[in-house]
């Protein structure tokens, strides 16, 4: 399951259609997570499914060169840090832990969200952290399960 598949049609379909569309759908689920079904965890799982599909079809070397395991570890750690910062920063503004309505991100409302409430700005930051953490962790799981094939 780590060698590239030798079907040209499969390569073309996966590389040109399935992986880009799955990633775009995952980003849609992430961005609209506050107003419709979806959210950080679901988006991370969908994008990680696209990454695993690329690693299964295009071969381990090709896909891992594009997006190495080291980068996945950094992604998961960055997601955890974003989530932790979104929890800790409101403490310095006189609010409770994870009270993200007190996050100092007023500028964010102008570029990202259609919702005018303060909670909607903060929930997107938390969702983005969860997205990065889930994406990185699921990729790491697959990479380490098939790691022994790297030596062949």
């Amino acid at each position: 399951m780590t060698e590239p598949h030798d079907s040209l049609i499969l390569h073309f379909i996966v590389r040109a259609f399935m992986v880009p569309f799955i990633i775009v759908f995952g980003i849609y689920v992430l961005v609209h997570g506050e107003a419709s079904p979806g959210g950080g965890f679901q988006a991370g799982a969908i994008v990680a499914a696209a990454f695993v599909l690329a690693r299964l079809t295009l071969g381990r070397e090709h896909a891992v060169n594009r997006f190495p395991t080291r980068v996945l570890i950094w992604t998961a750690s960055l997601g955890m840090a974003v989530y932790l910062l979104a929890g800790v920063v409101p403490l310095f503004f006189g609010a409770n832990f994870l009270d993200y309505s007190q996050l100092p991100v007023g500028w964010f409302n102008n570029i990202a969200t259609h919702d005018e409430t303060l909670r909607a700005r903060g929930i997107f930051i938390v969702e983005f952290g969860v997205f990065l953490a889930v994406l990185g962790t699921l990729g790491i799981l697959y990479d380490y399960l098939t790691e022994r094939y790297l030596d062949d």
């Binding site: 689920v29 079904p37 979806g38 959210g39 965890f41 679901q42 799982a45 969908i46 990680a48 499914a49």
Partner: peptide, 8 residues
Amino acid sequence: DVALTEAA
């Protein structure tokens, strides 16, 4: 929500 997670 749960269906998305379960499918992915």
